[in-house]
Design a protein around this nucleic acid. Structure first.
Length: 520
RNA sequence: GGCUCCGUAGCCAAGUGGCUAAGGCAGCGGAUUGCAAAUCCGCCACGCGUGGGUUCAACUCCCACCGGAGCCUCCA
């Protein structure tokens, strides 16, 4: 599929070694990448979007660098919480999972996460899961107890290596299953079903898979016994990933994953604890927890996206380093939006000059396809230098936060040049070509972050009301222009201030007045 | 208690054993504008939690302390 790629000096932080390592794929030119997806028992909150946005960006970058990438995100659609929640709602577990999966997918789409290749569901993979458990039992790493099957952590000498802990410090999951385990740290591979619970037939009786086994089974099915990158939130390092790793390594006698990548967690402003974290649940009772969850951004993602746009949220997530903790709130989101305006204004400026949309400018999709002009103009030279800087930062463990600085520098360089050349007046064709080549580089780089891919929806209502608004604005601004022409500034300022008060900003330029509806 | 991670200007946030510590938001001065807005130019940490240590040299390495976060139990 892919030609032998140029190998770029990528470095990736590996949780297993706690260092940045040179990125070398198992199979030259190919990358298998698995991200732990959601348990679909409730609406997604912003915390669930961090991993997808980050790994979407990772995939974009790897593809750009010439790799052929297969990215898998699983959907956990069978789990204790799904059973509980579906009973509360009086619907089947399957119905609940279907609804919540749809919610999750639509949120991903809003944030521009469109690079996922496969989204296997646990319930579609029962055969593989049962097969995997059987292999573990027959190899002596798991045992049947009652109608449950547990993984025996004492059989794995490397257990605890990922999360840096030993099997004996494990308290393990409590509950009534604890009494059937040989050691506290053992975890369930297969859980027997109680009457009325959803179940699948197995050699150990009707039941359902434990939490960790689906990832081992499904990743093997799609990516093989060993694959390149496994990602997830930092909170999954233990027990989830530790257990997955133990199962797969013991079953296959070879490492499961080459690079373990973990993203930092999201925290809510005005409160401690991660979004959707334990404190939410401890806050407990019904109405109260709902309110807290909402104030912490759990739930209500759709309205958050409507208010701030998916692009703004995506940029907010990519503005800081993926491994750091990010404080989420309305203020930081608005600030991210304010900084994005610089680019949108530049894009509008281009449109006014060229008469065409910046989103139609072609750009390089592959790193190796970029060719610098033999005699670059000063503007082009600057953009090329910034491009090198940007890519250097991305090469270093996907430093998206650092890389954004180069985008801002590029916008400034282009604006400066536009001011000097007075392009609004000359509209010189050769200058527009030069402008396009600069913007093409900006698009090439921003596409790696998955931003500026398509026009941002205007902050307005339906199409018909938008048409009315623009008609009204045309009329109002025409009257205002007449007032200005007769130097009736009292009237023209009153119009501008009045529009400002209702959230419309106007800008007078040499070519007339432009306006837009403010986003907060 | 055990194991991790973090602490950079008013706020957000990159980064490095030794050139002037990115960028953004806000703010200030200037160019521009009828006035604004936008854009451009300039300013905005003699300092990188505190105290020690290593080093020719540390914000960057080590130790202690203070403060914050995560995991050890379902969790992106």
């Amino acid at each position: 599929m892919s030609d032998t790629p140029t190998v770029y000096p990528l470095r990736v932080y590996n949780t297993l070694s706690k260092t940045k390592e040179p990125f070398e794929t198992l199979v030259p030119g190919h990358v298998g990448m698995y991200l732990c997806g959601p348990t679909v028992y409730a609406e997604a909150h912003i915390g669930h979007m961090v991993g997808p946005v980050i790994f979407d960006t990772v995939k974009r970058y790897l593809v750009y660098c010439g790799y052929d990438v297969t990215w898998v995100v699983n959907i956990t659609d069978v789990d204790d919480k799904l059973i509980v929640k579906s009973r509360e709602k009086g619907i089947s577990m399957f119905q609940l999972a279907t609804q919540m999966t749809a919610d999750y997918l639509s949120n991903l789409q809003s944030l521009g996460v469109d690079q996922i290749d496969r989204m296997p569901r646990a319930t579609d993979s029962m055969g593989e899961i049962i097969q995997f458990v059987q292999e573990l039992v027959s190899r002596g790493f798991a045992y049947e107890s009652g109608s449950d099957v547990f993984f025996d952590v004492t059989k794995d000498p490397e257990y605890g290596r990922l999360s840096n802990r030993t099997a004996d410090d494990q308290q393990g999951e409590g509950g009534e299953a604890a009494s059937r385990k040989r050691s506290a740290g053992d975890f369930a591979l297969w859980k027997s079903a109680k009457p009325g619970e959803p179940s699948w037939p197995s050699p150990w009786g009707d039941g359902r898979p434990g939490w960790h086994i689906e990832c081992s089974a499904m990743s093997r099915g799609i990516l093989g016994k060993t694959f390149d990158i496994h990602g997830g939130g930092l909170d999954l390092v233990f027990p989830h990933h530790e257990n997955e790793m133990a199962q797969s390594r013991c079953c296959h006698g070879q490492p499961m994953v080459k690079y373990w990548m973990h993203n930092g967690l999201m925290r809510a402003a005005n409160d401690s604890g991660k979004v959707g974290g334990r404190s939410d649940r401890d806050a407990g009772a019904d109405e109260v927890s709902g309110k807290i969850s909402r104030s912490k951004g759990a739930g209500g993602l759709a309205s958050l996206i409507a208010k701030h746009t998916g692009e703004r949220i995506r940029f907010f997530l990519l503005r800081s380093h993926y491994r750091s903790t990010t404080v989420f709130g309305d203020e930081p989101l608005s600030e991210a939006g304010a900084s994005l305006e610089t680019f949108y204004r530049l894009f509008d400026r281009y449109e006014r000059i060229s008469g065409s949309s910046v989103y139609t400018i072609a750009y390089c999709k592959k790193r190796s396809e970029f060719h610098a002009p033999s005699a670059p103009t000063p503007l082009q030279a600057q953009c090329i230098e910034l491009r090198n800087s940007f890519l250097g930062k991305m090469d270093d463990d996907f430093n998206t936060g650092g890389a954004t600085a180069d985008l801002f520098e590029m916008a400034r360089a282009i604006n400066r040049w536009l001011d000097q050349e007075k392009l609004e007046e000359t509209k010189s064709a050769t200058a527009i070509t030069e402008l396009q080549s600069a913007l093409s580089i900006l698009r090439e780089l921003s596409a790696l972050l998955g931003i500026f891919m398509k026009p941002v929806p205007k902050a307005s209502g339906s199409d018909s009301s938008a048409a009315i608004v623009s008609g009204l604005m045309e009329l109002v601004l025409k009257l205002r222009a007449e007032a200005r022409a007769r130097k009736d500034f009292a009237t023209s300022d009153a119009v501008r201030d009045g529009l400002g008060a209702i959230g419309i900003t106007t800008q007078d330029g040499k070519q007339g007045t432009t306006w837009q509806i403010n986003r907060t």
